[in-house]
Structures are given as C-alpha cells and as structure tokens.
Design a protein around this nucleic acid. Sequence first.
DNA 1: CGGCCCATTGAATTGCCTCAACGCTCGTGG
DNA 2: CCACGAGCGTTGAGGCAATTCAATGGGCCG
Lengths: 247, 247
Amino acid sequence: MDNPIIRRLEGFTRLSRDEKQALAEAASQRVRRLGAREDILVEGELPRDVHLVLDGWACRYKTLEDGRRQIIAFLVPGDTCDPHTLAFREMDHSLGALTAVTLAEISREGLQSLTETSPRLRQALVWTMLVALAVQQEWTVSLGQRTALERLGHLFCELFLRLRAVGLTDGNSCELPLTQGDLGDATGLSNVHVNRVLQVLRNSGLIILKGRILTIPDLARLQEVSLFSATYLHLDREGGSLDANEP
Amino acid sequence: MDNPIIRRLEGFTRLSRDEKQALAEAASQRVRRLGAREDILVEGELPRDVHLVLDGWACRYKTLEDGRRQIIAFLVPGDTCDPHTLAFREMDHSLGALTAVTLAEISREGLQSLTETSPRLRQALVWTMLVALAVQQEWTVSLGQRTALERLGHLFCELFLRLRAVGLTDGNSCELPLTQGDLGDATGLSNVHVNRVLQVLRNSGLIILKGRILTIPDLARLQEVSLFSATYLHLDREGGSLDANEP
DNA sequence: CGGCCCATTGAATTGCCTCAACGCTCGTGG
DNA sequence: CCACGAGCGTTGAGGCAATTCAATGGGCCG
C-alpha cells in the first residue's frame, strides 16, 4: 500500500481503509511502462483512460508550429497526468516521459465509480485539479515576472517540496533527472543561459547539482532569493469545505 | 434568465429547466457590486463564498514582495472567480475588479447542495475548472515561448472568443477595458513595450483599438501571426465522460 | 574506438527594459 | 468657468538580460 497516489491524497484528506483499498486496486489493474523520452499521449489524441504516475518523471508540454517547445508541468509520482479526460475528448497538449516511468491506467468509468461511491475521493480529485491550477498560476508568475535566476531557484524549491510530500527526498537532496535543455524549456530560457545561471546558483552555494542529484543546503535561503512561498502548493492538510464533514 | 453563467455552462452541456432555474436562483440571492479597481479578495483572506462574474471585468493577480505584479487571468461575465474555495481555506492570490463589476455570491453550502442534487451541474463545475487550467497552461506557453507581438495577439484572440461565447461581442468587435499597464502585467511586458507593439499591430491592420473597443478585422490572420489555436478554450460542446449519459 | 548527447565557454546580437519627458483627456475643486 | 492635477498614452535614448551562433570538452554506450 505504499502507493504515491494515496500518500499524495492523504496530504489533503484522511482516507478510510476501504477507500485506500479501492484506490490501490484500481491503480494496479492496468500498469503501463515506458522508457525515457517516450511519449505517453500526444496532442490531438482521444484518451480513454486516466493516467497516474506511480514511478519516474514525466511532463506536459506544448509545441508551436515552428518547433518552439514549452514544458507546462512536471509530473512526479502521485500526480495525475490527464484529469482533462474527465471533461474533454481531445488532448490539447502532449505528455512525455522524462525518465523511465510506470503509470497506472484507470478507465473513465472506473474512476467515475470510485468517485461516486466515495464523496471523499471525489473531493480529493477536485483538490488535485485545484492544486494543479494553483501551480500553473505560479508558473505564470515565474515566467512573467521572475528573473532567470529566480525562475530556476523557484522551480527547484517547488520540485523539492513536491517530492518531499510523497517521500522521495533524502535529507536536503532529491533526484533531478532533467537536462539543462529540459530546464530551459520549462523556464522559457535558452539552454545556454540555463547553464550560466546554474553556475551562479552553484557558486553562491545555493544549490549543489551533480549527477542527477540536487541538494539544497539552505532551503530557506533559496526560497528567499527566489521569492518562493510554499502556500500555493497547498501541501498542508488545511481542509476546504470537506472539513465540515470530518468527525 | 439571460444569465452569463448559464450561457457559459451551456457551451459544455445541456441543462434542464430545473437546473437552470436552481442556478439562476442561487446566483441572484446575494449580489455584490464593486467599483473599478477595487479589490474583491486579497491574498491570505479566508473566503466563505464563491463569486461568479455577472457583469464587468475582473482579474486574478499576484504581487511579489518587491512590487512586481502579474495578472494571472482575466475574468469576464460567466467566469468563476474562486473555485479554490471548494478545497482551500486561504486565497493564494488576489482578485481585483478592472471595471465596475456585479458578482453573484454563493455560499459553499449552497453550491454543494446544487452539485449534490444535479450530477450534471457537478460535472459542469469540474468542466469550468479544467477549462481554467487549460487556459492557464496556454498562458504558460505564451509567456515562455511567444514574442511580445504574439503574446498580445494571442491574448486578443482569446479574449474575443471568450466574450463571443457569452454573447458579448458585436460583429468583430468587443470591449477591452484594459489599460496598457494591465496588458503589460498580463503578458509580462513593460507598458512602454506594450505601447510600441500595439502600434505595430495597428499599423499592420491586425487590430483596431480605440477608446475601449477592440476590433479584429481578420481573426484568422491574427490567429495565424499569434500562433493561436482555439482548441484549448474548449468552447465547442465536445463532451467528455458526460456524453455517455446524454439521451 | 567512434559517435552521440549533454554540458560548457566565448563573442556578437537583439528584444525588451528603464529612465525620462511630454501631451492628452477627464474629473475635481476653487 | 477655468485651472489644476492625475492617470494614461506616446516617444526617444541608452542599457542590460538573455539570445543566437559556434566551437570545444566530457561521459556513456554500442
């Protein structure tokens, strides 16, 4: 039952044994494995299932006609790849594996029966969508207002905290299986400039980045220079309307 | 019953007479009016209600400690201001009126009873959240990859189509009650540069912008130069999982 | 060993920014 | 009624952050 999805949802609400059971079962029925850099779904496809990340890293991205590429979101274990499937027919962006990934495939109907039997799971699903929206809003701020250094620092803070929320950090270190090109596509910078800014971050002791391991010696300091505030991640079980129903 | 919210939802699903009735009633119980440039909610507040725009323009925005401001989203009639209230306690961004606005206030409980009695309304609410997410993703692409001219052109296309979806356009014109400063805060550009780019757009005949009226003589051409594709707005009633339940 | 992907560095270029000034329009108060 | 100020739009000049182009080096895999 060490399912990252359950760990994720429990950051928001307490789930009953039955709910966890049902969720774990639904997520283990059909499992899909892909190699690094393979596409999970591409823009225009008509997915029949919802995908959840069990292991590895993936990303959402969009490509413009002339080849410019923007990574819209990073997906780590516990994240939902395509809630869109619940309301739209067609993918309006693509999903790609960054590392080798393991995904759970849940059919639309399967998910619907889950949420129909448990209002708490329904609420939890709404919560994940709203968190995704909040993160996307913060990315909008980064790209619109933050400098290159702040953008990268901010991204590192976000990823570290998200990984910590699903138990994938080790002290003040975590994996970061991204190339400088990926970082550039996510932050709207050229890979050349990403390289230079990373050096500044390293030289000022704000990060240690070697191999695929990111270490943040002083998270508070990195947050400060990146103008990072964790509230938008909504990692604490603050409870929205659901609280009223809690025992 | 010419409620922009109903018009909006009907772009996604067909609502029964009863559903429309209930929605219209809930949205007329408590109405809040604000003047231009007033704040609706500020970051950190604990809203008890959900706000819907009935008339006028508003925006979401975030402010960094040093004063930099990013407009995250524009809200026009029919839009939901704060779905967050459904899952989060605290606002992680602010909401401001751009023009004088009329808002409907619906309590959390009121909204919950609406969605509990009608699965279709519940689904419609999920749909609005997913559309908001899709729009936010497209803004991420704009800020990350598009040039200043493309960003502004893209924004004009989006706003025009969104307004058309709720019947607020007149031929190929619509209102645009935004200052050049607002446009800059939304596109991540300085107001000076916005001014210069607007002149280019005007001089090439792509837009006519005078008073607070925007005219797009040739929408297809503006879409082309802005690399705009309308799919992300999901304006057509394409139907997600709900379709299966349709008669 | 050779080839490929990724990281790194340098040099020249540019899109956009900041600073600063000026004009216009509109609302307000004397 | 006119004077004034505030907010917004416009224009010019200079500067900087980030880009493009190009070349080199390192590590890993076939």
